[in-house]
Design a protein around this nucleic acid. Sequence first.
DNA 1: TTTCGCCGTGGTAACGTTCCCACAGAGTTC
DNA 2: GAACTCTGTGGGAACGTTACCACGGCGAAA
Lengths: 349, 349
Amino acid sequence: MNNTTGRRATIIDVAKRAGVSKSTVARVLGGSANISEEARDRVLKAVAVTGYEPNQLAVGMRSGRSGLLGIVIPDITNPFWAEVARGAQDRAAKDDISLLIFSSDWDAHKEATHLRALRRARVDGAIINPVADNFDDLDRFGMPFVFIGSSAERFPDTLSVGSDIAQAVRLGMDILVERGHPAPALMLGPRSRLARARFLRSVHEHCIARDVDPEVLLVEESDYTVEGGRSAMVRLLAKQWRGNRAVFVANDLMALGAMIAVREAGLRCPEDISILGFDGIPAGAFSWPGLTTIEKPGRQIGIRAVECLIDQIAGGRQRERIYLPCRLVERGSLADVSASAPVRVAAGR
Amino acid sequence: MNNTTGRRATIIDVAKRAGVSKSTVARVLGGSANISEEARDRVLKAVAVTGYEPNQLAVGMRSGRSGLLGIVIPDITNPFWAEVARGAQDRAAKDDISLLIFSSDWDAHKEATHLRALRRARVDGAIINPVADNFDDLDRFGMPFVFIGSSAERFPDTLSVGSDIAQAVRLGMDILVERGHPAPALMLGPRSRLARARFLRSVHEHCIARDVDPEVLLVEESDYTVEGGRSAMVRLLAKQWRGNRAVFVANDLMALGAMIAVREAGLRCPEDISILGFDGIPAGAFSWPGLTTIEKPGRQIGIRAVECLIDQIAGGRQRERIYLPCRLVERGSLADVSASAPVRVAAGR
DNA sequence: TTTCGCCGTGGTAACGTTCCCACAGAGTTC
DNA sequence: GAACTCTGTGGGAACGTTACCACGGCGAAA
């Protein structure tokens, strides 16, 4: 079904075989109008015979469109970012665009290297979770771009896509109230993280709207790790902590650690202590009990970012900030101790 | 630090600015010998001033090297494959090569589409976890390639990189014996999977070497899912099963499910039943107890695959099959009931 | 002095497309 | 019947690079 010579067929080979000019071949393949039936047939046949595949390099060279998009995320091995990448991949594929993926490891130097690679590859645009605090000049990025993730927050006047933390917190607080936990303890990440402030602010807003004094809430903070969550939970358990005990944890890894600490203290989750996570990492489905959590829309973020990018490449530049809604994933770590609760919570997965 | 016109600087802009010919610029940038100090300085200065970045498209067009490698894996969202991709990414970056990543979802049609995209992009080579049972003709793949993963097993005469299942099984059986479980039950995947036969064969070999009748071993099989592992464990518990009870599970997800079933049966892991997994998925670190497992060398596979590919692009084509060793990850799911065991196993993570 | 080789450099032809202009012939309008 | 439009086609330039050849100048060998 193709030449044995090893050389790839070019548009000229196709043209010769079809007995037309390369212009005509290009028109047929480009789906242009005004082609005779006969010419179209002959070209299509010749394409099949030669096994011709257009050379994207040449196309890009001439048309200025490489058909490539770049994405720079912290780590493809991190399940959240893998979801983002996957969403971007799938959306790009719909438009016959291929994705160049890079992992920055939250390292500004690696990021710079990757951005250079993207520029050299002449990608049509880039999706970036920014690491560097300031880029030389955003306008001279050298290509259209979309920022993703909460670190994009630092750059006010750019197009960016992220998850809607305010909505996520509302979702979490609502379910906690509904289940009889109107004043949960809070387990937060390090102060340095941007998302932390947003999380805390949203909790406060929610409390005030419900006439609860936010200062009443127990708060612990730690690193976004299993170990961090475990130690924070130990500290929490040592405090005066009355009533229906529940914790709203700002990160799933920490929540998993907290769950371990509960067990180590001889307590049960969710019977003694309810835990609500935030992220939606896969491991939450395999813990015991399964972690009830709020899932960030990773895949949607990837999809939307590509769409924004495509729009931006085609038309004018927008400078919008897009927040995508999160989703509650109910598993077994949240007890229902509300007045209306049937009998007792079942510790399902 | 660059032109404000928006147009990207070309080698000609650099040449003009440096007052030399583009040939000289190319030689300087290509690191060729026989350049005067003066010319080199002027060129380097001009490059810095113009912000010149070589156009990879043009380079690829002319030199036949696109500087791109493709990788087609089942799903970037799957932690194992993400590891593979990450390894490939890092290794490729060392040679200034960018990676085009695609997810096939174990779908032959998607795979074909992705391979076409790779051909169009004129990648210098491809790393593929093959899905299709037979390709039209391996020699006419249209580019150098390396197969990865156990499904590569189906194609005898190709270069491939995968994990050493025989060594992994030896590792597992050895630790089981050492801990006082000379005849563990086996939990296998579906018969359709290639890895299953290799796993079972290796267990048999190990048994025979140790003078154990392999027929004595309890065997259950199921899907590679949490639910599958759970139901298989239920069936296993219903059997006559004496002595120090341990299960060697051929997949971590199943192992996690088995662990849940143990707990649901009112038994404890590892005190009543020991579980040894196989894969090394991250979720195994967060279960309770932590899952002791054998980790496949995902990252190494990616690294090695890229190295093979680079070799193959440069030199002759090899048709070797490379097996990379797995690693035991000790967490808390394996009890030590051997005679030499200190007192009792601690249920650590 | 002539010849040779080497060094450093410049010019030009590709690579495979797309874009644009030109042009022949058929049909339409006045 | 001349001028015009429309349809289908072909030809050539350009995109930015590298590979190759050519050439002048200089020192060394004959």
